[in-house]
């Protein structure tokens, strides 16, 4: 493999997935990621996996094979027309780092197709067309301002990672050819947008965003954001709670909700807000003060009216 500068590495164990095996045969290994691909070193073997040959990352391996190992990274790659899956286990943080860097190398500075904005605030923009662009994966210290930037002729599109609400796949035709695209819903200061992206390695784009959403607690660890539905991770919401969330999303002010939700009193709505806060689905902006006049206050009003 060309470009041998090391990006990151880890020591752990690996096994090549054989679905006919009774159980995994883990062997100690060293895994080295370079700009060109991954070196798998185990026993006396050294196997190179070019980045371009990686078909998917993080695919689940059968529980029967993997046993009790929960922290692992699977890499499926195709060399000479043959697909091979290797599972690597090691320290959780190192595995996450390895996966993140692989995805970075697969996605950064690569050509994509983009449709932006596909929707604004839920309204489909049917006059916008697909364009070609270059995807830049921007990392910042601490990750607070990480973003995806797509450079295109009509102007750059910036998607702040911290503002992504959801990602799902959809079937769309690009240049008359059916493709499975990533539908990324994200907000900016002024509105909520849906941006459609087709990347060369689409799985990695989806996995990269999903991993971010899981890290941030936007979706739960076992939830696949792409599957859609099931909002709020593990939060079990009832009808009224769901409706209040939708109303808030649509722009009904939190203070107007009791009036808007016919037959719901303020105390009931505030209880629901407490529940939604505890689930991390809404955050407290301010506490409203409810007051009534004292005798002294009423006295002043009476005097004012006599003037």
């Amino acid at each position: 493999m060309a470009q041998e500068k090391v990006v990151t590495w880890l020591e752990g164990k690996l096994f090549f997935v054989d679905t006919y095996a009774a159980r995994a045969n883990w062997v100690p290994c060293k895994v080295v990621l370079t700009y060109g691909g991954i070196w798998l070193m185990y026993g006396n073997e050294k196997r190179g996996v070019p980045l371009a040959s990686i078909a998917s990352l993080g695919r689940e391996v059968s529980k029967k094979l993997i046993g009790n190992v929960s922290d692992y990274l699977s890499i499926a790659y195709v060399v000479g027309g043959k697909e091979t899956t290797v599972a690597i286990t090691g320290q959780s943080a190192q595995l996450k780092k390895l996966k993140k860097y692989i995805m970075f190398l697969q996605l950064n500075k690569k050509p994509v197709y983009i449709l932006h904005p596909a929707k604004v605030g839920g309204a489909i923009q049917d006059k916008v067309s697909w364009e070609q662009g270059i995807l830049n994966v921007v990392w910042t210290p601490g990750g607070a301002a990480d973003k995806l930037v797509v450079q295109r002729k009509s102007g750059n599109v910036e998607i702040a990672m911290g503002e992504i609400e959801m990602i799902r796949t959809e079937n769309q035709k690009i240049n008359g050819k059916p493709q499975t695209i990533a539908n990324i819903k994200h907000s900016s200061a002024d509105n909520v947008y849906n941006t459609f992206i087709l990347a060369g390695i689409q799985n990695s784009l989806i996995e990269y965003i999903n991993d971010h959403l899981k890290e941030q607690g936007v979706i739960s660890g076992h939830e696949d954001g792409v599957a859609g539905g099931g909002g709020g991770g593990d939060a079990a919401l009832e009808g009224l709670e769901d409706e209040i969330l939708v109303a808030l999303y649509s722009g009904v002010s939190a203070l107007e909700v009791p009036t808007f939700m016919d037959g719901t009193d303020v105390d009931q709505v505030e209880e629901i807000y407490d529940k939604l806060i505890s689930y991390g689905l809404v955050e407290l902006v301010r506490l409203r003060k409810d007051v009534k006049l004292t005798a002294k206050g009423r006295n002043i009003v009476n005097k004012k009216m006599q003037m």
């Binding site: 604004v120 605030g121 839920g122 309204a123 909520v192 849906n194 999303y249 722009g251």
Partner: peptide, 25 residues
């Protein structure tokens, strides 16, 4: 949505929507 376009719909909003965008549409 494709069927709705064929049927003659002239605008499309997906739920959940944001109030100002619906008004704009």
């Amino acid at each position: 949505v494709k069927a709705a376009i064929k049927a003659g719909a002239r605008g499309y909003i997906t739920k959940p929507f944001q109030g100002p965008s619906v008004l704009k549409e």
